[in-house]
Amino acid sequence: MKPYELVIDHEACWGCRTCEVACKQEFSTAPGVQLLYVTELSGPDESGREQFSFRVNVCRHCDDPPCVDSCPESAISQRDDGIVVLDEEACSGCRSCIDSCPYGAIAFDEQDGVARKCNLCHKRVDNGLVPACADNVCLAHCIYFGDRESVENQRNSRVGRK
């Protein structure tokens, strides 16, 4: 099976945050816990004009995820399809995974005392659906999901390339 990819075209993102809302609705996370979040970057360009850009921050489902090795409870695993999943029932709340993630993509749920992370909506994916953030909620259509070929085809069709 080809591993899945979640690709975000940050240049196309205009910061509407509908991906954040879709994720929050899908997982009903506690207040302050975000499995996906949009960051606004700003600063002057070469001519001194203020410029804005946005970055969607989410688990990258690394090829060799450091969070898997750092978890003393083996609560994080990588599926054969590349999706990295955290079993909250097995999580002891030690936060080792949070410290090991180079992308800051793992949150701590103070209410439940466990780590939380994007799991690419694996239950949706297992039922032939796409993750909530990529399910046509993105108004800029900058979030792509699927196997490598499918993602490339989606991106090319949206930007008029071949």
Rank of each mutant, 00 (worst) to 15 (best):
M1F: 02
P3N: 06
Y4S: 08
V7E: 04
I8W: 06
I8M: 14
H10D: 02
A12Y: 07
C19Q: 04
E20S: 02
V21W: 13
F27D: 08
T29G: 08
L36I: 15
V38C: 09
V38G: 08
T39I: 11
E50K: 05
S53M: 08
S53N: 01
C59H: 04
R60S: 03
H61I: 03
D64Q: 08
S70D: 08
S70C: 04
C71A: 00
P72G: 00
S74G: 12
S74Q: 08
A75W: 01
S77G: 14
S77R: 11
I83W: 12
I83A: 03
L86E: 00
L86V: 06
A90T: 08
G93N: 00
I98P: 07
I98W: 07
S100R: 07
S100Y: 09
A105Y: 02
F108W: 02
K117F: 00
N119H: 09
D126C: 15
N127L: 13
G128R: 10
V137H: 03
C138G: 07
L139K: 14
A140W: 12
I143Q: 04
Y144T: 11
Y144K: 09
E149Y: 14
S150T: 11
E152T: 10
N156V: 10
S157G: 07
V159R: 15
R161G: 15
R161A: 11
K162P: 12
K162M: 14
K162H: 11
